[in-house]
Amino acid sequence: NKFNKEQQWATYEILNLPNLNEEQRKAFIDSLKDDPSQSANLLAEAKKLNDAQA
Rank of each mutant, 00 (worst) to 15 (best):
E13A: 13
I14N: 01
Q53W: 07
L32K: 00
K2Q: 15
E45F: 13
N4H: 13
L17I: 01
S39Y: 15
L49G: 01
L32S: 02
S37Q: 09
I14S: 01
A46F: 02
N1A: 02
P18A: 08
K47N: 07
K33G: 09
D51I: 10
L15A: 10
E45V: 13
L42A: 07
S39W: 15
K47R: 06
R25Y: 03
A10H: 06
P18Q: 09
S31M: 12
A10G: 02
N1K: 04
S31W: 11
E22M: 11
R25G: 02
Q24D: 04
Q53M: 11
N4G: 14
A44D: 08
I29N: 02
E13N: 08
F28E: 00
E13I: 15
E6M: 08
P18Y: 08
Q38F: 05
Y12V: 04
N50G: 02
A27V: 10
Q7S: 06
N41Y: 15
A27F: 15
N21Y: 12
N4W: 15
Q53V: 09
Q38T: 06
L20W: 00
I29L: 09
E23G: 08
L32F: 03
A54V: 08
D30F: 14
T11E: 12
F3L: 15
N50P: 01
K5S: 12
E13M: 15
A27I: 12
A27Y: 15
L20E: 00
K5N: 12
E22S: 10
E45T: 11
D34G: 09
F28Y: 08
Q7D: 06
S37W: 06
A40W: 15
Y12P: 01
N19V: 02
A46V: 02
L49P: 00
K26G: 07
K2F: 11
I29A: 03
L43N: 01
L17Q: 02
A10K: 02
A44M: 13
S37A: 07
F3Q: 15
E23F: 14
S39V: 12
K33Y: 14
L42D: 01
P36E: 03
N4P: 14
S39H: 15
A46R: 00
N50H: 02
N41P: 07
F3A: 14
E22G: 09
D34N: 11
E6R: 02
E22D: 12
I14T: 01
A44Q: 08
N16P: 01
S31G: 12
L43V: 13
L49A: 05
Q53I: 11
A44T: 08
E23W: 14
K5V: 05
K5D: 15
N41V: 09
D35A: 09
A44H: 07
A10E: 02
L15Q: 11
R25E: 01
W9A: 14
P18I: 05
L15P: 01
N1F: 01
N1Q: 05
Y12A: 07
A40T: 09
K47G: 03
L49M: 10
Q38Y: 04
L15W: 12
K2R: 07
A54G: 12
K5A: 12
Q24N: 02
Q38W: 04
S37M: 08
Q8R: 09
